[in-house]
Design a binder for these strands. Structure first.
Length: 791
DNA sequence: GCCTTGAAGTTACCG
DNA sequence: ACCGGTAACTTCAAGGCG
């Protein structure tokens, strides 16, 4: 029989000595199925040293491995960095044998290199058969017996390789279950060896809502019930918030202590740690939505309530908020316990809401990159690009380079112009569309088209990068050019197809998320090629891209000036000029004709303000909104009070053009702060721990605060944000920084710090340009006396 | 031993 | 664990001064 299925997840297992690919899918009739393929075998390539005869190579490789670990040796024609190369394909019986066989092969005297021996077996299977997760496939199958403890409608044995059905772009109705756990935590961070799980909240996209609580029972029963609820609802996707880092590890650890098997997978197994630090639950996609929240730069402190609030999923004002360290108090206090219950429900409802926001994009990102849905969020940008490149390499018969450790290398990047300080009226921002990808295409920049300095080649056969002199063959099309061209064409086609549907339709949404996913990958390709960890890394490639970028922007500035436009500022691929439609049109035409790139007006500012600093400006848009770029107001490491002051100052200056009003406003805020009317929450300064506490060379404020938290039993790790408040005291700032959760009263705070080091600098950044002096902003006690002024 | 000053360390932004 | 360019803060240590 033939079935059609949408691929949700993939893995493999050994059945005796046979590796079995297992594809977990949903059929077009809504059945949850497993499609098993036992026909595929792992393999890798051996590159022989030059001048070694192939028969000698084959003879040598025959000794590889014992007990028929190697099934076959085939000489195949591949390309390596664009050059034809004869290699030996070593096909093996068992995936687990590959690492040892690889090392064995590598050590042989006639072997130059071993390639593609580090590609996971199920990824290899998908790449070779053009199978993408989160897409539809058709396959001839026969039903086989379902193991009793597997949770599927049917198990099939594939009688051929599944074939993609590109015209089926829908997404089946997926059963989504959101969950969140609360733990008893009287000593800071909860510890699974002693602290029970007190609440597990659950919400599904079918409307089920449930609190599993430890009220009147041990948490052992909570875990049991959790497993039961999951198995009963049988979700396709399980979502959590930071669940890869917290909920699942905690549940797994805790379940060991209370002796509960967390068999929540469709194969009746426990969740397990897998690649990119994600937790895998066989047969379901376990998605940690925190990974997607991480990609929203506007949200500085990415707590669940902040993200849900920002996305309009659940407003903070309409939910219960409890500080993490207080959870146990709410549990212990019978009168407050209902609040904790409500809090747990608000959390899980928020998570389900986030799933609705993030899953459509996650699904398309998975379908584009080929990384399984449960991994794609956890995979870094570099790996997302790389898996896509590996898919293309296979299509182009190119060998995939090995991942090698390289020392850090630096090279010059983009140009940033000195801004013309002051207020400018009526300014247009023009920028190149997808500048770096288009430069890579235009000059055929790629590791496989690169011509090393020693190699002789006719000048008209190559493009030569300005300043750095790197040369790239004009023909044939390089790897990056082919990939980027395909992506750009593909995105255009998607956008074209979107026009067929109303913007509110399901189809439109899918296509829109898809074109966004394609754009994200295309834009990350330059960054990828300059990443020393990349398989296709080459410094010269990245260096040439930025060199041509500098040339483009310089030429554009020149011509703009010639046309009589005034260039006020520019950064990388943008220029700010006076909004003169005729001249701008001419400039854009010139750019297209002479530089072969597209340039578009991005936005118009009614009024825009620059100080002397680069990468910082603010502007008033025609619709009355205000853009703030680079300034403290958009940074996450300044106190809210200072950011607010700066934002308001900018607004007054740009909209009302009144410096006096702004000063008056700053005075008012300072007075409010002095009289204790500013809430503590506006005084918290958040900073990220970028390394382990022991590695810091200087004791800065957030490190000092982090150490205090640690002493109290809280757990902190790299990447966590520490919120501190500056309190009264003497000595260094670090000594006065106190974790905000320990600050109980407004009387503790160091008012002068917030005035002198937060509010005034933030306001001065703007007002300083208008000749305002710090003392004009300062009010009250600490105004400098004339005497102090002269000493 | 105290104060000034510049380098180093650190974070987070822009495109 | 995607790039370089940039601003701005705090800490730290060297060097000058008394």
């Amino acid at each position: 029989m033939r079935i059609r299925f949408w691929l949700l997840d993939i893995t493999y297992d050994m059945v005796g000595d046979i590796p079995e690919i297992r594809m977990f899918g949903i059929t077009d009739t809504g059945k949850r199925v497993v499609v098993c393929d036992r026909s595929f075998r792992p393999y890798f390539y051996v590159v022989p040293k030059q001048d070694v005869p192939m028969d000698a190579v084959l003879r040598g490789l025959k000794k590889l491995g014992l007990r028929a670990k190697v099934l076959s040796l085939d000489v195949v024609e591949k390309k390596y960095f664009g050059k034809p190369l004869k290699v030996v394909k070593v096909t093996c019986q068992r995936p687990p044998d590959v690492p040892t066989l690889r090392e064995e092969a590598r050590s042989l005297p006639f072997v130059q290199d071993v390639l593609e021996a580090d590609i996971r077996y199920y990824m290899r299977y998908m790449i070779d058969n053009d199978i993408y997760p989160c897409t539809w496939h058709e396959v001839e199958v026969e039903e086989i017996e379902k193991p009793r403890d597997w949770q599927f409608d049917a198990v099939y044995l594939a009688k051929g390789v599944p074939k993609p059905i590109p015209e089926m772009r829908s997404v089946p109705e997926l059963k989504v279950l959101a969950f969140d756990i609360e733990c008893y935590n009287p000593t800071g961070a909860p510890k699974p060896e002693k602290d029970p799980v007190i609440i597990i909240s659950i919400a599904t996209n079918t409307g089920l809502k449930k609190l599993i609580t430890a009220e009147g029972r041990r948490d052992r029963d909570v875990l049991w019930e959790f497993v039961r609820v999951i198995r009963e609802f049988d979700p396709d996707i399980i979502v959590g918030y930071n669940s890869n880092e917290f909920d699942w590890p905690y549940l797994l650890e805790r379940s060991k202590y209370v002796k509960v098997k967390l068999n929540v997978s469709r194969l009746n197994t426990e969740p397990a740690t897998s690649v990119y630090g994600h937790i895998s639950i066989l047969g379901r996609a376990n998605v940690d939505l925190y990974n997607f929240a991480e990609e929203i730069p506007e949200i500085k402190v990415k707590t669940l309530e902040n993200v849900a609030d920002y996305l309009g999923v659940k407003k903070k004002s309409e939910r219960v908020l409890i500080e993490g360290h207080e959870i146990y108090r709410y549990w212990d206090d019978e009168s407050r316990r209902p609040l904790l219950m409500r809090y747990a429900m608000d959390d899980v409802e928020s998570i389900l809401g986030l799933a609705e926001k993030f899953l459509p994009f996650a699904i398309q990102l998975s379908a584009i990159t080929g990384i399984p849905l449960d991994q794609v969020g956890a995979a870094s940008v570099g790996f997302r690009v790389e898996w896509l490149l590996m898919r293309y390499a296979y299509k182009f018969n190119e060998l995939v380079p090995n991942r090698v450790e390289r020392p850090a290398e630096t090279y010059r990047g983009a140009i940033v112009l000195e801004p013309k300080p002051g207020i400018h009226e009526n300014i247009a921002v023009l920028d190149f569309s997808a500048m770096y990808p288009n430069i890579m295409i235009k000059y055929n920049i790629s590791p496989d088209t690169y011509v090393p300095p020693m190699e002789e080649i006719a000048p008209d056969m190559v493009y030569v990068a300005p300043e750095v002199g790197h040369r790239f063959r004009r023909e044939p099309p390089g790897f990056y050019r082919k990939v980027l061209e395909t992506l750009i064409k593909y995105r255009k086609a998607i956008r074209e197809e979107m026009k067929k549907y109303p913007p509110t339709s399901f189809e439109y949404r899918i296509l829109d998320e898809r074109q966004k996913a394609v754009k994200v990958i295309a834009n990350a390709t330059y960054g990828y090629c300059g990443w020393t960890g990349a398989r296709w890394y080459m410094r010269e490639v990245a260096e040439a891209v930025t060199a041509w970028g500098r040339e483009m922007i310089k030429k554009t500035i020149n011509y703009a000036t010639q046309l009589g436009l005034k260039v006020i500022y520019g950064d990388t691929d943008s220029i700010f000029v006076n909004y003169d439609e005729d001249r701008i049109r001419k400039l854009i035409e010139w750019v297209e004709k002479e530089l072969g790139l597209e340039m578009k007006p991005d936005k118009i500012y009614v009024r825009v303000f620059f100080t002397e600093a680069k990468k910082r400006y603010c502007g008033l848009l025609p619709d009355g909104r205000i853009d703030i770029v680079g300034f403290e107001a958009v940074r996450g490491d300044w106190a809210e009070i200072a950011k607010e002051v700066q934002e308001k100052t900018i607004e007054i200056v740009l909209k009302e053009r009144s410096v006096d009003k702004a000063i008056e406003y700053v005075h008012r805020v300072i007075e409010e702060l002095r009289s204790g009317k500013v809430p503590l929450s506006k005084l918290i300064i958040w900073k990220t721990l970028s390394k382990d506490l022991s590695e810091y060379k200087v004791l800065s404020a957030h490190v000092a605060a982090a150490k205090k938290l640690l002493e109290l039993g809280y757990k902190l790790s790299v990447g966590d944000k520490v919120g501190y408040i500056v309190t009264k005291g003497s000595g260094k700032l670090a000594q006065k920084a106190k974790p905000y959760i320990l600050v109980k009263s407004i009387d503790e705070i160091d008012v002068e710090y917030y005035i002198d080091k937060q509010i005034i600098p933030a306001a001065m950044r703007i007002l300083g340009y208008f000749g305002i002096k710090e003392d004009q902003l300062r009010t009250g006690r600490k105004q400098k006396s004339l005497l102090e002024f002269f000493t």
